[in-house]
Each structure stands twice: as structure tokens, then as C-alpha cells.
């Protein structure tokens, strides 16, 4: 039993430290020793030397500039600040309205309307879904925009730069010897591909189940807990599993950077336009043509169902995009 745990740990550890899977040493992996986690791993001579010098140079630099004391003061100050903040907040918490009391100021007429009229005003059985996608939809639109911003920024930082660098490698960076990654050969599909037959078997069984689960969570977002965001996260795990078991090239066939951008932009666009329509009609007191449906049915909740599907698409794409960008710098 212990050996097995060690073996699993070893595999996980290898994966994290970037050594990739080792299907050939299923028996007992010879190296590196299992108890040493990767940050304490004995490194090659150069690296150790290099890091030591970096630390040394750093300390010297602090001393030269008289910053040693400053850095000590900084640490002391930040600990002190945090203790002060915690004490202050604890004192504040002690004064706050008591926990779990129904007479708290937060349980006011706003909540009453959400609960009592939420059903027929939004058509959603899940009050939270009705709240975030109908009453306070502007926040949620902002939230999707945050995700979009982050996706675009990460794409820019990790993805596009690499592509540009490979295409038109910038000479000044290579000259200074700084940018060792850029000189590394671009990652090819075969390097990451896993030939683990057990993983493949499990994946081919579980991917449909995960996809189904994700779809259920997304589509039932207005009836049961869950919704676009959690369902989208589940869907993205199916994609991640697929990429891990069958290699990125499989996923790349139907989900690459172009499809990523097109799908998230389109989904966000549908979201924005439908929400814009509802904001516009609502603010100008026009009649909205969107039926609310009967509570409890799958086709209820007005715009909530399509919005949940859009959010699910955005989230699934974005989270898989994060995964792909982080693991190989490309989608």
C-alpha cells in the first residue's frame, strides 16, 4: 500500500517537475529520490551555483545600497500592519450584527422581494441564478468581461509573444543571454503526449460522463445549484482530460486559438446583445418580448438559460485556454 502511494506521488511529482510521464518505469522509478519534493531537488551543479550566486549577489546588493535594514524594516512593518489589521478587524467583527440572526440589516426588503417575487419575475427556481442573471445582471456581465480580459491578457503574455518571437526572434534579447526560453526549441506535440493506456481507457469512459455532467449543470442552472460558471469549469476539465490522455493535437483539431477566440467572442457577444436588449427595454419601460415560462420547467427563466449556456461556453473555452497556454504556451 505504502509503495503504491509512493508510486502515485512519484508520478505526480514527475509531472509537476516537468519530467513528463514515465510509462517505462512502472515498477520502481530509479531517480530522483521520492521524498524530496521538486523545489528541494538536488540540482545540477550549474543551477545550484547560479542560484547561490543570485542570492549572494542579492544580499551584497542589499548591503551596498544600505537596503538590508530597509528590507528588515519592511518585513517587520508588514507583519505589524497585518497584525494590526487582523486585530482591528476582529474588534470590528465583534461589533457586527450577530451571525445567523434573522433581524440583521442585510435581511431587508430587498431580499424579501428577491425571494417572494423572484419566482414569477425572473422565472427561475434557483433564486441565486435569477439574482445574478436578471436582477443584478450588470455585475455578472462585468464578471464575464473580467474573465474575457484575463483570457486575452494571458493569451497576449504567454501565447502571442512566443509566436512572435519564433517568427521574428528579437536579437537584443538573445544577445544578452537573458531569454533562455526563446532559444529553447518550440514544444512539439509528441513531447507532451502521454502513452498511458490506463489513462486513455479511463478518459474515454469518463470524458462523455464529465461532458454530460457539465451540460446538466449548465442547462439546469436556473433550477438547481450550479450554472454557467461551475458547469463551464466542469466542461473545461473534460477538455483538459482529453488533452492529457490523447495529446494536445487531438484537441487542437477542433479547438485551437482561432476557435477559442471566435467561440468566446461570439458567446460574449450574444450575452452582451441579449443583456443589452433587456437593459434597454427595462430602462425605457418598453415591453420585452422574452417569455418568462413557468417556474420549474426546463424552458423557464427567460434569458437565464441561454445566458447560462453562453457563460458556460466562455468559461469552458477560457479555462481550457489557460491550461493550454500555461502548459505549452499555445492553444
Amino acid at each position: 500500500m505504502n509503495e503504491e502511494i509512493k508510486l502515485i506521488w512519484q508520478k505526480f511529482f514527475n509531472w509537476v517537475s516537468g519530467n513528463g510521464p514515465r510509462p517505462e518505469n512502472e515498477v520502481i522509478p530509479p531517480e530522483p529520490p521520492p521524498d524530496l519534493p521538486f523545489t528541494q531537488k538536488p540540482k545540477d551543479k550549474y543551477t545550484r551555483f547560479h542560484e547561490a550566486t543570485l542570492k549572494e549577489r542579492y544580499n551584497q546588493w542589499l548591503e551596498i545600497h544600505g537596503l538590508h535594514i530597509f528590507s528588515l524594516i519592511y518585513s517587520g512593518l508588514s507583519v505589524l500592519t497585518c497584525i494590526v489589521i487582523v486585530c482591528l478587524l476582529l474588534a470590528t467583527v465583534a461589533e457586527l450584527p450577530p451571525f445567523g440572526d434573522e433581524k440583521n440589516p442585510a435581511n431587508n426588503e430587498v431580499i424579501r422581494r428577491y425571494v417572494e417575487h423572484g419566482g414569477h419575475e425572473t422565472g427561475a427556481q434557483n433564486i441565486v441564478a435569477g439574482l445574478i442573471l436578471d436582477y443584478r445582471a450588470f455585475d455578472t456581465f462585468g464578471e464575464s468581461a473580467v474573465l474575457f480580459t484575463a483570457a486575452v491578457s494571458v493569451l497576449m503574455i504567454l501565447g502571442v509573444s512566443r509566436r512572435n518571437n519564433i517568427e521574428e526572434s528579437s536579437p537584443d534579447l538573445n544577445e544578452s543571454g537573458q531569454n533562455f526560453l526563446e532559444r529553447a526549441p518550440p514544444v512539439n506535440f509528441h513531447e507532451i503526449r502521454q502513452d498511458d493506456s490506463i489513462l486513455r481507457a479511463v478518459a474515454s469512459l469518463s470524458i462523455p460522463a464529465i461532458l454530460l455532467m457539465g451540460c446538466v449543470v449548465v442547462i439546469n442552472g436556473h433550477l438547481t445549484p450550479g450554472g454557467g460558471f461551475s458547469g463551464g469549469a466542469i466542461l473545461s476539465t473534460a477538455l483538459i482530460l482529453c488533452a492529457n490522455a490523447f495529446g494536445f493535437e487531438r484537441v487542437h483539431k477542433f479547438f485551437n486559438e482561432r476557435t477559442f477566440i471566435i467561440s468566446s467572442s461570439t458567446a460574449l457577444m450574444i450575452y452582451a446583445l441579449s443583456k443589452g436588449y433587456s437593459f434597454f427595454t427595462g430602462a425605457n419601460h418598453f415591453h420585452s418580448i422574452i417569455p418568462k415560462g413557468t417556474i420549474g420547467n426546463i424552458l423557464s427563466g427567460g434569458l437565464i438559460l441561454p445566458l447560462n449556456i453562453c457563460v458556460g461556453l466562455i468559461v469552458a473555452g477560457t479555462l481550457y485556454g489557460f491550461y493550454a497556454l500555461f502548459s505549452r504556451g499555445d492553444i
Binding site: 509531472w15 509537476v16 517537475s17 516537468g18 519530467n19 521538486f38 540540482k43 545540477d44 550549474y46 543551477t47 547560479h50 533562455f180 526560453l181 532559444r183 529553447a184 483538459i240 489557460f322 491550461y323 500555461f326 502548459s327
Partner: peptide, 22 residues
């Protein structure tokens, strides 16, 4: 998973660095 990937990439980068400098 994002944290693991980041750690893995850092490990990987270190490997590349070592390979290049050896």
C-alpha cells in the same frame, strides 16, 4: 491545476537552463 502547471513550467525551465549550460 494552474498553480501546478506554473510550478511544472518553472521546473521545466530550470531543466532547459541546465541543459543549455552544461
Amino acid at each position: 491545476v494552474l498553480f501546478f502547471l506554473a510550478l511544472r513550467k518553472i521546473g521545466k525551465l530550470e531543466h532547459n537552463k541546465d541543459d543549455e549550460n552544461n
